[in-house]
Amino acid sequence: MIRSPAWALLAAPALIAAAPANQDLALVQKHLRSIQTMTAAFTQTDRNGKVVTGTLTLKQPGKIRFQYQKGVSILIVGDGKALTFIDYSVRQVQRWPIGSTPLGVLLNPDRDIAGIAHVVDSGDPRIISIDAADPKHPEYGRINMVFTRDAAAPAGLRMEGWVALDSQNNRTTIRLSDERFNAPVSDGTFRWNDPRSKSPKG
């Protein structure tokens, strides 16, 4: 079932008492550590307003795949160590250490986020919004992640999406729907075909 994004809930009446910010941050950490795998549909909006859709697959630690809609020649894959951007239309491959990207917060559940993240007041106690950036490495960018309280989801939270700003201040918004948690996911999901050669790469 596709639900309304958390951002739409901000206009609704708030009926739940707000929890202290440190408790909310700890709950987000618990949620991230409770996710072994996740699949979801996503909608991505870039800084120019271009919208594309696709399927996200995540497997901890550090593995993620953004499979875009048919006709989009881009693939993004994290293999546990590096995040790889592949553009098949121009046969280009770029790689970055996962920890030096905004997604490092999401893809390293063992990291204590208390030193790099803080809770942002959303105006609705049903929603937890956190902003994370490494103060020692501003070049890694920043990420704002949005969660809604959901007793049926891991640690009682459901990730609604995030807004990431990279080191060039490029803004990307991801909104998730139809999340499914902790089902088996093969490591083969995170392999990709290198457009510079004919052999698969993992």
Rank of each mutant, 00 (worst) to 15 (best):
P102Q: 10
G99F: 01
T101R: 07
G123R: 01
I143K: 03
D178I: 06
R95H: 15
V93I: 10
D178R: 07
T148Y: 09
L103S: 11
D150H: 11
M145D: 04
D166V: 06
P138H: 06
V93G: 05
A117Y: 00
I128V: 02
V185N: 10
W162G: 01
E160G: 10
T148I: 08
H137G: 15
A183Q: 14
A133N: 11
D166N: 06
P125A: 11
F147C: 10
S186E: 14
D110C: 13
A183C: 15
R180L: 11
D124T: 13
A151M: 10
F181V: 08
K136V: 15
E139Q: 14
V105F: 00
A153S: 04
D110T: 13
I113V: 07
D166C: 07
G141Y: 00
F181S: 14
I174G: 02
K136T: 09
R111T: 08
I128L: 02
D124Q: 08
D134C: 03
S89D: 05
G115W: 02
H118N: 03
M145S: 03
R126S: 09
S177W: 05
R158Y: 14
L106D: 14
P184E: 10
R171T: 07
A164S: 07
R95W: 06
P135T: 08
R91D: 14
G141T: 14
P184K: 10
W96M: 12
G115R: 04
F181C: 13
I174F: 01
Y140C: 13
A153E: 01
D112E: 09
V120S: 00
S186Y: 08
D124Y: 06
I98Q: 01
R158A: 13
S129W: 02
A117H: 00
A133Q: 12
L176K: 00
D166P: 06
I127Y: 04
D131H: 09
A114V: 12
Q92V: 04
I130Q: 00
A132D: 02
P102D: 14
N144V: 14
A183S: 15
A117M: 06
V93A: 11
D178P: 00
D112M: 13
G156P: 12
P138L: 06
V146D: 09
S100W: 08
G115D: 02
F147Y: 01
L107Q: 08
